[in-house]
Design a protein around this nucleic acid. Structure first.
Lengths: 350, 350
DNA sequence: TTGATTTATTGGAACGTTCCATTTATAGAG
DNA sequence: CTCTATAAATGGAACGTTCCAATAAATCAA
């Protein structure tokens, strides 16, 4: 059934008694072939255990059918959700996306990008690693490979971005906290080299300012965007002379870390210290207490990114419009009112 | 700087005033080239914005440098951890593994496998989807592509397997529960078409038998291997006339679901109903209460699988030995003693 | 100097496809 | 029948590499 060496279309041609061109046409589902011939060829294909060599085909064809997804942290369930959304739309387009993980490492990212390019990808959806240098995507650009950024963006690049409305999300979250009576607020996690960070922090700051929180009452603690980072942030904050009573976290992972650290100190998240996350990963709903978080419709953004990509490939362009997804605050149980404020019977302006 | 059409080694050759063969040699880092020539060529490569065409190269070379990882559920953090372990070793071998998700769908898996083969992968590490047909990997076999199964295996295939000692893990977990005084035990989640399920259930059953649990006191509830599946299992179990007091779950996701469902019913996981998970994902430690689980050294298994793969490629074989990883039970807070047993002061034989 | 040896470099065939331009077969019109 | 139009199948030249065999240049032994 299977021959020693790899079978090629010539082997099939011989087996079926037709020319290689005919086999090629059948492979491409061309309507030019007489149905009976096609059947004969397909049988031969089956018989010799043929596997199509896409590399050889791409040598002649303009476009490959490979799309790469380059993700900065696969262990964050958030990105897995994003990937799932993308896969949904690529699947229906007959494309198998290849996922590669950069583990938040720009050097690794460089390798991944290089490898994907060499493979002849038709397009790339990327959530760039922290500390990506501005030139990292120049090669892609000059090669004319369509790229879209998902969730994260680079300081000043012309590459289209699909991301949630970070500013508004953070504003909503901070306003919620302030509405609950909190007057000393913190922003936990993330680092300023991330544009997303700037955006989220910006929304947070704007809320504080317009809703009358004094500048000296807001605390910013940078940190890793992981559970561990969250733990560290809380430690830092509680070591202050006048610690905050509530925090907006850069993302849910950080929020989980903060809740963990609170528990370890015998404090109850929600009651003793309010915490809000960002991204609303599925775990958020299931945590104890359930985490209030900014929902960004992750899978939807993934789908959107995939659609944009498909359109770019189709129209052979490397440009597209940005897309900012709507967000909304999902209120759960992780932020009670400010304990200290209550007994004083403070009224709130807004 | 960048030319219109894609640059090839011939363009470089012209630019550097050498032959294409020389360029090829430089690209491969051959020592046959005079250093000054190599420098000249490398400069030309930079100047024309060349990107290597691996497809063309693979047409001539025996082996590609692509390794695929086919995973049945990327949203399960367990598999992300596995992937991370593999990536560690591939990276140091200068290989970028491509990850593809099958979402537990055999049809999708078929497509993914086909696509990866067409791409000319050097090898495949696969955690097969549930319901994979026995013939699904025949093509790979006849094509001589090395494949290793990670975590899961197929009923009777000769493909090497890297997996934890499921039987022993389940035995340990069940024994722990019995040691705590529980006499009515359940096994939650998973379906019998999974070999892993058979193994884990087997270990569970053996423990029950040798440690004196009556057959009518053990309850098996099949279900999805997800949080949702866990919720369903618990509902089913508690609807019984004489419900179990403790459960070993097929994996941590199921266990999380069970804990969730308990809470929803006003029961406290650990105190009112004991639950043990399997896999020991990072979340297990951080749950409330922290989940007792069978630790399988996920990343370690990933590394092992990658090593086996590398060795298979190197020795151009398609066979390798199975590797069963050691497991151990990590006891945390999710299983207290049987409430009902205590007052009666029952002693235990073993 | 000559021939042999080593060191650098090179042309050309091959790899497995696609696709254009042809050829061959089939049918329809007169 | 022949002529034309249509349908079906085909040969051959690319595509961008690698690698073998061959050449050219430099070095060495005598």
């Amino acid at each position: 059934m299977a021959s020693r060496a790899k079978a090629t279309i010539l082997d099939i041609a011989r087996e079926a008694g037709v020319s290689k061109s005919t086999v090629s046409l059948v492979l491409q589902g061309s309507g030019l072939i007489r149905p009976e011939t096609a059947v004969k060829v397909r049988k031969a294909i089956e018989d010799v255990g043929y596997v199509y060599n896409r590399g050889a085909a791409n040598l002649r064809k303009a476009h490959s059918n490979v799309i790469g997804m380059v993700i900065n942290d696969l262990t964050n369930p958030f990105f897995a959700e994003l990937a799932v959304g993308m896969e949904r739309v690529f699947q229906s387009a007959g494309i198998v996306p290849f996922i590669a993980n950069t583990a938040e490492n720009p050097v690794r990212q460089e390798e991944v990008l290089k490898s994907l390019m060499e493979q002849g990808v038709a397009g790339l959806i990327v959530s760039p690693a922290r500390g990506t240098t501005p030139g990292a995507f120049r090669r892609l650009e000059t090669a004319g490979v369509p790229v879209v950024f998902a969730m994260r963006r680079l300081p000043d690049s012309r590459i289209p971005v699909i991301a949630p409305d970070n500013h508004r999300g953070a504003y909503l979250a901070a306003a919620h906290l302030i509405g609950k009576g909190h007057r000393r607020l913190a922003f936990f996690g993330g680092t300023s080299d991330l544009v997303v960070y700037q955006e989220r922090l910006g929304g947070f700051r704007e809320a504080c300012e317009t809703l009358g929180i004094a500048r000296r009452d807001v605390l910013i603690v940078e940190g890793e965007t992981s559970r561990r980072g969250g733990i560290a942030c809380l430690e830092t904050a509680l070591a202050m002379a006048e610690p905050p009573t509530a925090a907006l976290c850069f993302n849910d992972a950080v929020a989980f870390g903060v809740m963990l650290a609170l528990r370890k100190r015998g404090l109850e998240p929600g009651a003793d210290f309010a915490v809000v996350g960002f991204d609303d990963v599925v775990e958020a709903e299931h945590y104890m207490p359930a985490l209030t978080s900014v929902s960004v419709d992750t899978a939807g953004l993934g789908e959107r990114a995939a659609h944009v990509m498909l359109k770019m490939i189709q129209s052979r362009t490397t440009r597209a419009e940005d897309h900012i997804g709507a967000v909304n605050l999902v209120v759960r149980d992780s932020c009670g009112p400010d304990r200290r404020a209550r007994p004083a019977g403070m009224g709130d302006a807004a």
